[in-house]
């Protein structure tokens, strides 16, 4: 629910600034962001783990 607040504020910001034409781009970007979050795509630290390849 908390993230919905952020989304609402984000869209409100772009509308307030009159940058309507950036909203479709923003939508696609947010979908890509969801992909990153779901797959742990931001985790790249690896202590105590030596790479195999």
């Amino acid at each position: 629910m908390s993230r919905l607040t952020t989304l609402r504020q984000l869209v409100a910001h772009f509308l307030r600034r009159g940058r309507f034409f950036l909203l479709p781009l923003l939508l696609v970007l947010l979908l890509a962001g969801a992909l990153l979050l779901l797959t742990g795509g931001l985790s790249y630290v690896a202590p105590f783990v030596y790479t195999l390849f």
Binding site: G33, L36, G41
Partner: peptide, 18 residues
């Protein structure tokens, strides 16, 4: 830039709250 913006920077208030 978009990777870091969408990955964590945009959600900083939610992350702090959580």
């Amino acid at each position: 830039a978009l990777r870091s913006q969408l990955g964590d920077k945009l959600w900083v208030l939610d992350d702090l709250a959580a």
